Amino acid sequence: MLHEDRLSYTPAASSVTLARHRAVQLVTEWGYPELAWSVGLVVSELGTNSLMHGCIRGRLFQVRNVLRVGTLRVEVSDPRGERLPHARVAADDECFGRGLRIVAEVADRWGTEPRTVGKTVFAEFDVRDGGGRAKSVGRQHG
Rank of each mutant, 00 (worst) to 15 (best):
M1A: 12
L2M: 13
L2S: 12
E4G: 05
R6C: 05
L7G: 03
S8H: 04
S8P: 01
S8W: 00
Y9R: 00
Y9M: 00
P11T: 02
S15I: 01
S15H: 02
V16K: 00
T17V: 14
A19S: 05
A19E: 02
R20Q: 12
H21S: 06
R22E: 09
R22K: 10
V24A: 08
Q25Y: 10
L26H: 15
L26E: 12
V27N: 10
T28V: 12
E29A: 14
E29M: 05
W30D: 06
W30C: 12
G31V: 07
E34G: 12
L35N: 03
L35M: 07
L35C: 05
A36I: 11
A36G: 03
S38A: 15
S38D: 10
S38G: 11
G40I: 08
V43I: 11
E45A: 02
E45T: 08
L46T: 09
G47F: 01
T48S: 06
N49G: 02
S50F: 00
S50G: 13
L51V: 02
L51C: 05
M52R: 15
H53R: 08
G54L: 07
R57N: 11
R57H: 11
L60M: 13
Q62P: 02
Q62C: 15
Q62G: 12
V63Y: 03
N65K: 07
N65I: 15
G70Y: 07
L72M: 11
L72I: 01
R73T: 15
V74G: 03
V74L: 04
V74H: 00
E75I: 05
V76T: 13
D78F: 01
E82I: 05
E82H: 08
R83N: 14
L84P: 06
H86V: 15
A87T: 14
R88D: 07
V89D: 10
A90R: 06
A91R: 13
D92S: 15
D92A: 15
D92Y: 09
G99V: 01
G99E: 04
L100Y: 15
V106Q: 08
A107Q: 06
D108F: 03
W110M: 07
W110P: 08
T112M: 09
T112G: 00
T112K: 04
T116P: 09
G118M: 03
T120N: 07
V121F: 02
V121P: 03
F122E: 00
F122I: 09
A123C: 01
A123L: 04
E124N: 06
F125E: 04
D126I: 00
V127D: 08
V127R: 11
D129I: 02
G131Q: 02
G132N: 03
G132M: 06
A134M: 08
A134S: 10
K135F: 10
S136G: 11
S136F: 01
S136K: 12
V137S: 13
G138R: 15
R139F: 01
Q140E: 14
Q140H: 13
Q140L: 11
H141A: 10
G142A: 09
G142W: 05
